[in-house]
Computed example of a mutant assay.
Amino acid sequence: MTVAGGRRPPSFGLPPGYFDTEDGQGLIGRINAVPGERVLVAVAGAPGSGKSTLAEALVDQLSDAVLVPMDGFHLDDSVLERRGLRHRKGAVETFDADGFQTMAARLEQPGREVIYPVFDRSRELAVAGAGVVAPASRVVVIEGNYLLLDQAPWNRARYDLTVFLEVPEAELARRLTARWRGFGKDEAAVAAHLANDLANARFVTRQSRPANVILRG
């Protein structure tokens, strides 16, 4: 997946040749077996769990598939500043949850073109209308931290198959530290980002509904 305008973070979590393994082939087969003209697959997990990597790889393995990241529904920094939430960017309350749920409902409709926002990490903002799900796209892989939260409005989104990546906190911390250092952050900024990310990771782990498929690693 190309993220509009920006450098991509490091990829995490998917071992080489995963889709040549029994587990990898089983996941692809399970998605392909879901009936319907439009199939929504949710890939959820904590920050740094590898959900973006897995979601992108799934789209590459599937025919007529497209990736829709949740991150396009980040609230703008100017809104976060007014709400005193700039330091919590990435937390559940810093997303347009109702907007995301509305998009998810539109995606359920077969043969419908859906326009969605894409997050530009180089500018730390969402770009409206930067992503398109074509009418012919049968499988839509949606990825994000909060897709399986057991609270409204997140729990109103309906998925045909759900996948959750479960990663130990120590490994998340290692990956996230590398991520923020890779963006050129100094150590104080890395520590602040890490504290926020791990708080969000704990929230995701405790508050998410059980998934159809759980991948541990």
Rank of each mutant, 00 (worst) to 15 (best):
T177R: 08
L148G: 07
P153N: 04
D96C: 01
T205A: 14
V92R: 08
A211Q: 04
F95D: 08
A170P: 12
R179M: 12
T205I: 10
V139C: 08
A130M: 11
G184V: 11
A126Q: 10
E124P: 02
V114P: 07
L125C: 15
G131V: 00
P168F: 11
G111T: 01
R174P: 06
G184S: 08
A157V: 09
T102V: 14
S208G: 02
E113H: 04
G129R: 12
F164S: 13
L198S: 05
R158S: 13
I142H: 00
V92Y: 07
N145G: 04
A134V: 11
R158H: 13
A188C: 09
T177F: 02
T102Q: 14
F203E: 03
N200Y: 02
R88L: 15
A178C: 09
R112I: 12
L176G: 10
V118Y: 11
V140Y: 01
A97T: 09
A130T: 07
V127T: 08
E113A: 14
A192T: 14
E187A: 06
L165G: 03
L172C: 06
D96V: 04
G144A: 04
W180S: 10
G90H: 02
P135S: 05
W154G: 03
R158W: 08
V127Q: 10
V133T: 08
Y146R: 02
